[in-house]
């Protein structure tokens, strides 16, 4: 199924369908993640791969046009050779790999048992992914927020933000064919019904990350999709009235600083950077508050960045 989807993407010359197939591909992959017990990852992949990045693709295609030329035959040989070589190396490696699903594989030994056995006592949340993400490897997650922030600054630097004076009613919409969407009563009614629950769900995911799958990142993406949906149906202008782009542009930095501030506070209290034990009197409480705050930072940055990037793209297509 997956392989078939990918082959279709290769053959596809209409970009619109290629993008939709990619989205479909992500959705299948995320269900496979689900089957492989990676609930958090599945959640994120569905929200990001099938959701937000598809929207970015569509917004970009609306600007650059939809058709790609077929590749000439002779130009396919070199890439094919490189790909086959790389594939051969990978295949060669698989024969020494631990068997799929084996509990004795080295990957399951050494480091991981401590996360599984001690994290409840050391960090607190039953969702081990959250403990590892926010505490054991919190520094990586800070870097991850940094990546998102960098992407935002980059897009901002290249395209400019949606900071043009709003108020003039614009006619076109980012995604071709959306124009008719605004008139469609059904869409409007349904989206009215959907958007509010989506935003509330985002908040639920944000605070529930300790216990179930979820956390700041997923929540941010979901929140952003809610706003983007609103912008698609009602147009950019009302959406920008709702969230003024000038203020929105500050938020990614706020999220990143909030995250780092927790770490710096720990340093001021005499512990290492990002050591939440020192945030409150009792280490376990400290961990709890620390994780809550940094997840909030992640959520703010991610949501603001996604909405910002979407606004930037749509401003360009007008």
């Amino acid at each position: 199924m997956l392989v078939a989807t990918v082959i279709i993407i290769i053959r596809m010359e209409k970009l619109m369908s290629a993008v939709l197939m990619t989205s479909f591909f992500s959705l299948i992959v995320s269900s496979i993640f689900m089957v492989l017990d990676a609930v958090d990852v599945a959640f994120t992949e569905a929200a990001v791969g099938a959701g937000v990045s598809t929207i970015f693709f569509l917004a970009a295609i609306a600007i650059v046009g939809r058709v790609s030329k077929p590749t000439q035959r002779k130009k396919q040989i070199l890439p094919l050779a490189i790909v086959l070589c790389t594939g051969a190396v990978l295949m060669y490696a698989t024969f020494d790999m631990p068997r799929f699903g084996s509990p004795d594989a080295p990957a399951q030994q050494h480091v991981v048992p401590r996360y599984l056995n001690e994290s409840m006592a050391e960090v607190g949340p039953p969702n081990i992914v959250t403990s590892v993400l926010a505490s054991y490897r919190g520094y990586d997650t800070l870097g991850e927020v940094g990546v998102v922030f960098t992407a935002f600054i980059g897009v901002f630097l290249l395209l400019g933000a949606g900071t043009r004076k709003s108020g003039i009613e614009r006619t076109a919409n980012p995604v071709a064919g959306v124009e008719s969407m605004r008139q469609s009563i059904v869409l409007r009614e349904v989206s009215d019904l959907v958007i509010a629950p989506v935003l509330i769900f985002a908040l639920y995911v944000q605070w529930h990350g300790d216990f179930g799958p979820g956390g700041g990142f997923q929540a941010g993406v979901i929140f952003a999709s809610g706003i983007i949906l609103y912008a698609l149906i009602y147009g950019i202008v009302p959406a920008q009235k709702l969230i003024p782009p000038r203020k929105l542009a500050y938020l990614p930095a706020v999220g990143l600083l909030l995250y780092a501030a927790v770490g710096v506070y720990g340093m001021l209290m005499g512990a290492n950077f990002l050591d939440y034990d020192a945030v409150a009197h009792d280490p376990l409480h400290g961990q709890h508050y620390g994780i809550l705050i940094i997840e909030l930072g992640v959520g703010i940055t991610v949501a603001a960045v996604m909405i910002n990037i979407f606004f930037s793209f749509s401003e360009r297509s007008l």
């Binding site: 492989l36 017990d37 990676a38 958090d40 990852v41 994120t44 992949e45 990001v48 791969g49 937000v52 990045s53 970015f56 693709f57 917004a59 970009a60 600007i63 650059v64 990957a107 399951q108 480091v111 991981v112 996360y115 599984l116 081990i128 992914v129 403990s131 590892v132 993400l133 490897r137 990586d140 997650t141 870097g143 991850e144 990546v147 998102v148 960098t150 992407a151 980059g154 897009v155 290249l158 395209l159 990142f217 991610v302 990037i309 930037s312 793209f313 360009r316």
Partner: peptide, 29 residues
């Protein structure tokens, strides 16, 4: 339980992926 560490790594990697996509599309535009 399945390995939480790889899940964390991939969560990070997914974010990196979408960041790259966004910037790449911006340059394309």
């Amino acid at each position: 339980y399945s390995n939480p560490l790889t899940h964390v790594l991939i969560l990070t990697a997914i974010v990196v992926g979408v960041a790259t996509t966004a910037l790449g599309l911006a340059i394309t535009v």
